[in-house]
């Protein structure tokens, strides 16, 4: 059991990653085909993990219902909806008439409404972000003003504004972004190397 839980994932990770990395450096058609196949398997593995996720949702909401919490009615609605979509999807596939109707006329409007409410959060958050409460926020605010000056009426009455905005975008912003990207990319290489070689096993519930 210990082998399956801790060693097998490392062996599988190393084997798959070796092929994917090697096909980038060496032009061997068989390895390229195998690498493409491994990347497709990723979708299948994620589908298995989805079952775990659904298990977690059922456990959480069933617990709330059985404890008769004040939010139990919402938990019941969640579980009933989950069951309906699961049953209809399995019965007539996700391209079926009923499933499509449920998706287009129940899920989509609800999702859109839910997403629309985030507008208020974004507006309020933007106000909070642009409020000068620390030096970072001050830099963000000044940069934002400079960027806004390049459009509309400002650019007509202040012809130098677009040039300043372009300079902010092309020089300090790009330099900063590239510094972060290069630094992070190198760290990603290190982290990936540790995981691929099995030197780091924190995500499997183990240490080094």
């Amino acid at each position: 059991m210990q082998f399956v839980k801790s060693k097998l994932p490392v062996v599988v990770t190393f084997g798959a990653a070796f092929i994917i990395v090697a096909q980038y450096y060496f032009n061997i058609p068989a390895w390229k085909t195998l690498a493409a196949e491994f990347l497709r398997w990723n979708v299948i593995i994620a589908a298995f993990a989805l079952a775990l996720g659904i298990g977690g949702i059922v456990k959480l909401h069933w617990g709330r219902i059985s404890r008769r919490q004040p939010t139990a009615v919402y938990s019941a609605a969640t579980l009933i909806t989950l069951a309906i979509f699961l049953f209809v999807g399995l019965y007539e596939t996700t391209r079926g008439k009923t499933y499509t109707w449920l998706y287009d006329f129940i899920y989509n409007p609800v999702a859109a409404t839910s997403y629309a409410t985030t507008f208020f959060f974004i507006t309020s958050a933007a106000y909070r972000a642009f409020r000068i409460k620390n030096s970072y926020a001050a830099v963000l605010m000044i940069s934002a003003i400079l960027m806004m000056l390049q459009v509309g009426v400002f650019s007509v009455y202040l012809p130098v504004a677009p040039k300043i905005a372009a300079w902010v975008w092309n020089i300090p912003t790009t330099a900063g972004m590239r510094a972060v990207t290069i630094g992070a990319a190198l760290s990603v290489v290190g982290n990936a190397f540790r995981v691929i070689t099995g030197l780091e096993r924190g995500h499997l519930g183990g240490g080094e």
Binding site: G176, M177, A184, S187
Partner: peptide, 22 residues
């Protein structure tokens, strides 16, 4: 990088890129 300015302005402390790994 597209989110860093917003989290820098809104949070009490942040990890910038490679700092998460370090």
């Amino acid at each position: 990088t597209h989110q860093l300015p917003f989290i820098a302005a809104g949070c009490d402390a942040i990890f910038i890129g490679a700092e998460m790994f370090a």
